[in-house]
Design a binder for these strands. Structure first.
Lengths: 143, 143
DNA sequence: ATATAAAAAGATAAAAAACTCTTTTTATAT
DNA sequence: ATATAAAAAGAGTTTTTTATCTTTTTATAT
């Protein structure tokens, strides 16, 4: 579904949002531990998300990653697009180069609704949305 | 979503089903062309599906792959499991090692329904089901 | 029986994804 | 001003996936 890169990216973003509520910053090591991801790998991912302006960072002592109010509006879809591109929106589930209403693949019709819900799921959830739920132990980033 | 192996496998199976309606057999070259797949790669895939008894084959002149009435009952899910394993059934969409009702990941609840529909889609469609539709040009395996 | 055409099997190669290590840059506190 | 701690950048490695090539086996037709 999503690449490892994207999985780590989403979890890291949720983790940073959570930790930066009070204005503090989180280092890569803490992010890696808190989301059970390989440190250097998730560092690269955060770098990329920083370049794409989905998260802020500061270097040096007391530096780290953080999110402002605007960053909290980032949807899962924004992260997915930043890391995995548009394939989830555009690709045929059977890999046909072009697959559409006029020239559909064998499962095009049945996949249409599933895809719609998948896209809805990532579009409608913002990183900020998760903040409250995570506090109350309603879900987890590591098991 | 599915691996390339699985995409090619599904298309190949539909193609073979289609061609073996009249009891004839299809060679790998024809399968590869008919589904726009790399010949040697799809050969490996068909080999594996043969080993797992989802399709029949005969060697030698006039040989090739074919399906009997029983093979036509094969669901997409059977093919997916044979080639991609159970990950679509069991894996957390964010890659958590364990993610369930008691210890859910942040999108567990929302993904539950999507997953259910995805599984329904592959469980409920058999290879035989596609035979009629393909004839009438209602869908395509290549674009 | 023999030649042949096809899949099966085995080995290798190329590309992509996942992951790691090293060096450089830079913001901050002292 | 300087030391330091952190991210950024760059380069490299490993693993997995995708794809290809070669040899072997075997069913069939002649």
């Amino acid at each position: 579904m999503f690449s490892k890169t994207c999985e780590y990216g989403i979890k890291a973003m949720i983790f940073v949002a959570q930790k930066s509520k009070d204005g503090s910053r989180v280092g890569i090591k803490e992010i890696a531990k808190g989301t059970d991801a390989p440190e250097h790998f998730v560092a690269k991912i955060m770098q990329e998300l920083g370049r794409k302006k989905l998260v802020h960072s500061v270097k040096g002592p007391n530096g780290g990653f953080y999110m402002d109010q605007f960053d909290l509006q980032t949807s899962l879809a924004d992260i997915v697009r930043a890391l995995d591109g548009n394939s989830i929106y555009s690709d045929c589930v059977l890999g046909l180069k072009t697959c559409n209403e006029k020239k559909p693949c064998p499962v095009h019709d049945q996949y249409r609704d599933i895809k719609k819900n998948l896209i809805k799921m990532i579009e409608e959830n913002t990183i900020g949305d998760f903040n409250n739920k995570l506090d109350s132990g309603k879900f987890f980033l590591v098991n």
